[in-house]
């Protein structure tokens, strides 16, 4: 891992700290035997990893993945891009929202194999050099989070919401941000953040 997006400033790293403190808690996906009729068309042996090339934040990543791996798990467990969060893992909470070809999707229901050849943008890919993306800055300015777990998904969703033209008024922002759940209920401040960042993003 030599690309900028995965390098971290020296000092405290919450994930490294937690992994160290709790011992090796990251268990790879358990493979369960396919108890199914063997007459299915076999494109490849499902027990073998598949070669996948993902384009993440402008960089090509060559991976060997179990076919079951979602984009979210590929990002978090294989590329160490842990900004995208796993909330429900069923497409209901929005914490895993990323952009694929500039459209917001839930990465937990997207197979990595199906995302080959597409441009994946994560929260780690938003800032340029030392400058935060206007939406990141707006979330800080408006105190648009408490625990912060939903925040990367909220910000990715909000960037797309603005670019789709769905941030013209508060009602629209609330409707088009409804796929991102905030357990701390920071909604009023999230709406304020989206309103603040929208003009700057639309300016380009």
């Amino acid at each position: 891992m030599s690309d900028k997006s995965s390098s971290r400033p020296s000092g405290f790293d919450r994930r490294a700290f937690m992994a160290g403190a709790a011992g090796s808690v990251l268990v790879p996906m358990t493979a369960r035997a396919a108890a199914q009729d063997a007459s299915a068309p076999v494109a490849q042996d499902p027990s073998l990893p598949v070669e996948v090339t993902l384009r993440v934040n402008g960089k090509e990543k060559h991976l060997h993945l179990d076919a079951r791996t979602t984009v979210l798990d590929a990002l978090r467990e294989h590329l160490k891009l842990t900004g995208s969060k796993k909330g429900c893992d069923h497409g209901q909470c929005g914490a895993c929202t990323v952009l694929i070809d500039d459209r917001r999707v839930v990465s937990c229901l997207t197979l990595a194999l199906a995302a080959e050849g597409q441009e994946i943008t994560t929260i780690e890919g938003l800032a340029t050099d030392d400058r935060l993306h206007p939406m990141q800055q707006a979330f800080i300015d408006n105190d648009a989070f408490q625990c912060g777990y939903c925040t990367p998904g909220q910000i990715m969703s909000a960037v797309a919401c603005v670019k789709e033209g769905h941030a013209g008024n508060e009602a629209d922002i609330r409707e088009y941000m409804s796929g991102n759940i905030c357990r701390c209920a920071a909604y009023p401040n999230i709406v304020a953040a989206v309103k603040q960042a929208a003009p700057e993003i639309m300016k380009g």
């Binding site: 035997a33 396919a34 199914q36 490849q44 499902p46 076919a67």
Partner: peptide
């Protein structure tokens, strides 16, 4: 999740064939 094989269908015939291959015994 149980394991599965993954195949990309690049034209409708290929999709129909891949899906239909398992059809006979599966309803």
């Amino acid at each position: 999740m149980r394991s599965f094989s993954y195949q990309r269908a690049t034209d409708p015939d290929m999709a129909v064939q891949a899906l239909g291959a398992a059809a006979a015994s599966n309803n």
